[in-house]
Design a protein around this nucleic acid. Structure first.
Lengths: 138, 138
DNA sequence: TCTTGACTTGGACTTTGTCCAATGTAGGAT
DNA sequence: ATCCTACATTGGACAAAGTCCAAGTCAAGA
């Protein structure tokens, strides 16, 4: 539970009520929330927390590498607390929920040198889309 | 060049100056523009074209399957005219430009059945990120 | 406990995109 | 060639997501 908070403290994070609440919201569930959803859930526990603080905190968690930003549809970004495990995403094209998945081969190896165009490639993400069982039955 | 326009006409598209200009902007280059960039370039050729029309036209091209929407960073969507070839993307993490790349293996095969969680998976996209030569030298 | 620099706040602002009523026009019908 | 009309375009208002900032607050080291 407080693994995350411990790590952050060790990195010189000032531990405020707001930050704790945001971290707990992310840590608590396996869904990937948008910033506004995080704010809504944080508000339940700490009614005065401001949107700006939620954005700030999410941004800090991302720069610290504790959380990943996932852009699904060009609208709101979602935040993935599962940053320390190598994984990719499976997104329902109807309801937008995201699952983490693990894949069998290394996609980095699939990009041949001549296709890199001089880029210093440092990251790769694979996104699968389809209809989830829930939406399929509806 | 007018392959695209021909196809669209065949599908009952009313051919207006505005639509022609937007199609030409997309068709003309290998970069993937944002809607605003498309609008800026369209304005050079047809000064009175409105933002709404550019958005409408891009939306139509996407529904017709002639153009793909690419969500890179949760900010502006970019439009990829290369919808008929199977390809993936290499994005500069600094300036945001996108190149199309071709990869060596089929990423769909990399997702094992138990990792599909009952989804009807229909699509996969692989996104590489790194720093482009241009930004690296700056 | 005091101090201080880091944190939070709310509101204004920006960017990206959507919607709509009024106006214009492409292209088939005559 | 001209007319009609359904489809397109326009601009401006609106909305959603996110950023920025000056002023106030507070965690934690001295």
């Amino acid at each position: 539970m407080s693994d995350l908070l411990e790590r952050l403290r060790g990195r010189g994070w000032r531990l405020t009520a707001q930050r704790r609440v945001v971290a707990e919201v992310l840590d608590g569930d396996h869904v990937h929330y948008t910033a506004d959803e995080v704010h809504a859930r944080a508000t339940e526990r700490l009614p005065e927390i401001s949107r700006a603080t939620v954005y700030n905190t999410l941004g800090e968690l991302v720069s610290l590498g504790e959380v990943l930003e996932v852009s699904t549809d060009g609208r709101a970004k979602r935040y993935d607390p599962n940053a320390h495990h190598d994984h990719h995403h499976l997104i329902c094209s109807q309801c937008g929920t995201i699952r983490d998945v693990h894949i069998a081969s290394d996609p980095m190896a699939a990009l041949p040198e001549p296709e890199r165009f001089g880029f210093a490639v440092s990251e790769v993400s694979v996104t699968y889309r389809g209809v989830c069982p829930n939406c399929a039955s509806a």
